[in-house]
Amino acid sequence: MAAAQTDYGVPKSMLCPKFLHSNSTSHTGPFSAIAELIDNAYDTDVNAKQIWIDKTQIKDIECLTFMDNGNGLNYELMHRMLSFGYSDKKVVNGKHPIGMYGNGFKSGSMHLGQDAIVLSKSKNDLVMEEHQASLRDILDHSPFNTEEELLTELRAIESSCSSTGTRIIIWNLRRSGFIPMVTRLI
């Protein structure tokens, strides 16, 4: 596979999908992966007051959901969160951020399951025409086949008595180790 070229002829770096799995093995078990996702919600820039963790069925697919009532993520922040090794977290009101290496969400979620989707509402949410390709990809490659199904999941954020927040849905759960026990506890 040839690397994509930038405008300057320099090849863009690539990421092998197997990296996601090997990166997820940095956790010793599902509880450290769950702790990673909880830490993200309570970090100083997110400022969540509550987090809900649940096991649910979406179209007969067993899923773990993590939802907080924090500040939410706009398009740019979401892109940064999903990028590897990126973190611009700073001390806020004397509180040091937990996440600093831009790896926690990816390693935590991929330790728990093979697929994840992040839905978020922030105060400055804007849906732009250039985001339509992302919407099509979500509808093609997630358990949500219609915009209404996706909007139902977004409305769950509002049900937390907050107009902002983030909802992570993880599916194709890994069955090795303690995952069956985790899903029974939740």
Rank of each mutant, 00 (worst) to 15 (best):
S163H: 14
L119S: 03
I179L: 08
I179V: 13
L112T: 01
K90M: 07
I53R: 04
T146C: 11
G108M: 03
W171M: 04
E153N: 08
Y8H: 14
L119H: 06
A3H: 07
L150C: 11
N145F: 14
E149R: 10
G29W: 00
M100S: 15
M181A: 12
I58D: 05
F19C: 10
D115Y: 13
I34Q: 05
Q50G: 07
T166E: 00
L185P: 03
P17D: 07
P30K: 09
D88S: 08
R80L: 12
A3N: 09
N145S: 15
L37G: 05
A48H: 00
F66K: 06
I169G: 01
S160I: 06
G165P: 01
K90G: 10
A116T: 03
T56L: 15
L139T: 01
P97E: 05
N74L: 09
K55M: 10
M78L: 12
A133D: 12
L185M: 14
D115P: 14
E76G: 10
M78Q: 05
N23P: 00
K90A: 03
W171K: 08
P11W: 00
A33T: 04
I61C: 10
I169F: 05
Y101D: 06
L119F: 04
T44C: 07
E158I: 09
L77T: 13
K123C: 11
L82I: 03
L139D: 06
D60R: 13
N145A: 15
L185F: 15
S160L: 10
G29P: 02
K95I: 12
D125M: 09
I169N: 01
L112I: 03
S109T: 00
K123Q: 13
S22A: 10
S26Y: 07
Q5S: 04
Q132M: 14
K18E: 14
H131P: 11
G85V: 01
S163K: 14
D43S: 02
L112D: 00
N23Q: 11
N69G: 00
G108T: 00
F144C: 13
N74I: 09
M81L: 07
I138F: 05
D68Q: 03
R80E: 12
S32C: 12
M128T: 15
L135C: 13
I34C: 11
K106C: 01
N145C: 15
W171C: 03
M81K: 11
K18Y: 12
K12S: 07
G85P: 03
L64I: 11
D45S: 12
S122C: 09
K49N: 11
W171G: 06
D68Y: 05
M78D: 01
A41M: 07
K49F: 10
S87R: 02
I170L: 03
S24H: 01
T152I: 15
W52K: 12
N145Y: 15
R136D: 15
N40I: 06
T183D: 05
G9V: 06
K123F: 12
A116L: 02
L185G: 10
Y8L: 13
F19D: 04
L151T: 15
E153H: 10
N93L: 10
P17A: 02
F66C: 02
S26T: 09
S162H: 04
Y8M: 15
E149F: 08
S13M: 11
L73W: 01
T28A: 11
M181G: 14
F31S: 10
